[in-house]
Design a protein around this nucleic acid. Structure first.
Length: 199
DNA sequence: ACGATGATGAAC
DNA sequence: TTCATCATCGTA
């Protein structure tokens, strides 16, 4: 069974990951977001939960692959703001990219969410989940929009694949750094029914 | 391998 | 105002 649409193991403890989870280096956040739920408002007041399985870290102004490396612009201003806010922008004229801002205020760093559950690919997942630029700048640390939630699923480090980031060949040596994090959800423990512990 | 598709940012 | 670029994707 794929993890999408699966309820949390402990609904009463369901709460968004807080600002503390994101006010850290982007590579640490990118790794730790693997195996968490992305909680998305669904039809008729329901929530969808999608397991995060692919992320990329953009480290800050010194990272030549990061939008913030050329200074603050209208598009990337959200990246310079507080951690735990969504940074969403349009890529190639048609694909919305979903990022979560990380690190301290003034440092343009973020994590790109590249794959969740069955929806692999940053443009595909935003299309499937109905995400667009109207989310840019909104907080992820409160219920009401989209947020992350601990799943209780342990992701063993040996199951995390690290590769260079996709589509940033222009970034010189920064293009080679292993800042993409991937886990195959089929290798994770079976997702449980509500009230049960992950095996 | 290539075109779609349009906002962005820098140059002029 | 023009132009190159772009954290992609579907089709061939």
């Amino acid at each position: 069974m794929m993890p999408d649409m699966t309820p949390p193991a402990h609904p009463r403890h369901s709460r968004p990951l807080g600002a503390d989870s994101f006010a850290r280096p982007a590579d640490a956040v990118a790794r730790d977001l693997l195996g968490t739920w992305l909680v998305v408002p669904g039809p008729r007041g329901r929530q969808e939960r999608h397991l995060v399985c692919e992320t990329e870290a953009y480290l800050g102004g010194h990272d030549l692959a990061c939008h913030g490396s050329k200074g603050m612009t209208k598009r990337n201003a959200t990246m310079f703001g507080p951690a735990g806010h969504w940074y969403v922008y349009l890529c190639y004229g048609m694909h919305w990219m979903l990022n979560i801002v990380t690190g301290p205020v003034g440092v343009p760093a973020a994590v790109l969410i590249r794959g969740v559950g069955d929806h692999v690919g940053p443009g595909r997942l935003t299309k499937a989940l109905g995400i667009d630029g109207s989310l840019d700048g909104r907080a992820a640390t409160r219920k009401g929009g989209l947020w992350f939630e601990a799943s209780g699923i342990r992701v063993p480090p040996r199951l995390i694949e690290r590769t260079p980031r996709i589509g940033v060949g222009y970034a010189g040596a920064w293009a080679e750094k292993p800042l993409r994090f991937v886990v195959d959800p089929r290798r994770l423990p079976t997702i449980t029914q509500p009230g049960r512990e992950p095996s």
